[in-house]
């Protein structure tokens, strides 16, 4: 192969290497700009990823739904329709296997179905919030402390939703972004 041919192929590879992260950014920005914002009540825990850094793992309160249908299998992809409750937090309206034609929904996965209490548990695709490595552990502590004040659970994740795709924008404790709260 001539140098110029190798070079042309390389340019294609380089473009692919650039397009993939750019595509990721574009999708996420689009959801942030045109998607609907929902507040998901949550509890943070602090693990880490070798490449992406420290994050807080979010346990959401609105991750279950009562159902008598017991045919759900683990990791099965599902559509979760969400609505706002009276306090303005997200709650699960219904879970379906077919794409809902209207309303806001999240592409989620089945965690497991408990036949004991007839509850379906869900895994959301926005359960990791990446934080500065010095703040991630503090964030978990801050949340635990905030739990002890007068308001029951005041930690929530702000999630933008557009046609099933989601972007986790920020996590708030007492209406303050968690990164600022721990400072």
């Amino acid at each position: 192969m001539k140098t110029i041919h190798i070079f042309i192929v390389f340019i294609l590879v380089a473009v692919a290497q650039l397009i993939l992260p750019a595509q990721m950014i574009f999708n996420q920005e689009d959801i942030l700009k045109t998607g609907t914002a929902f507040k998901f009540k949550t509890q943070p825990v602090d693990p880490s990823n070798p490449f992406k850094g420290k994050y807080i793992y979010l346990n959401f309160e609105a991750n279950t739904i009562k159902t008598t249908d017991s045919t759900w299998s683990r990791h099965e992809p599902v559509f979760v329709s969400v609505v706002e409750d009276s306090l303005g937090f997200a709650m699960v309206d219904k879970v379906t296997r077919v794409k809902p034609s209207n309303g806001d929904f999240v592409n989620a996965k089945v965690s497991y179905y408990s036949s004991y209490d007839k509850t379906l548990r869900l895994d959301y695709p926005f359960n990791e919030f990446y934080m500065n490595e010095t703040k991630a552990f503090d964030a978990e502590i801050a949340h635990a402390n905030a739990q002890n004040d007068s308001i029951p659970n005041n930690t929530y994740a702000l999630v933008f939703i557009k046609e099933g795709e989601t972007v986790l924008d920020n996590v708030f404790i007492d209406e303050i972004p968690i990164a600022d709260y721990v400072e």
């Binding site: 290497q17 993939l20 992260p21 990721m24 950014i25 996420q28 990823n49 070798p50 490449f51 992406k52 850094g53 994050y55 695709p125 926005f126 359960n127 990791e128 919030f129 990446y130 972007v167 986790l168």
Partner: peptide, 22 residues
Amino acid sequence: LFFAVGSSIALVSQIYNIPGDL
């Protein structure tokens, strides 16, 4: 370049909190 490709995907995932498994 090999590691730069890894770092750029990782950083974008970090910025937008994209979970995705390892």
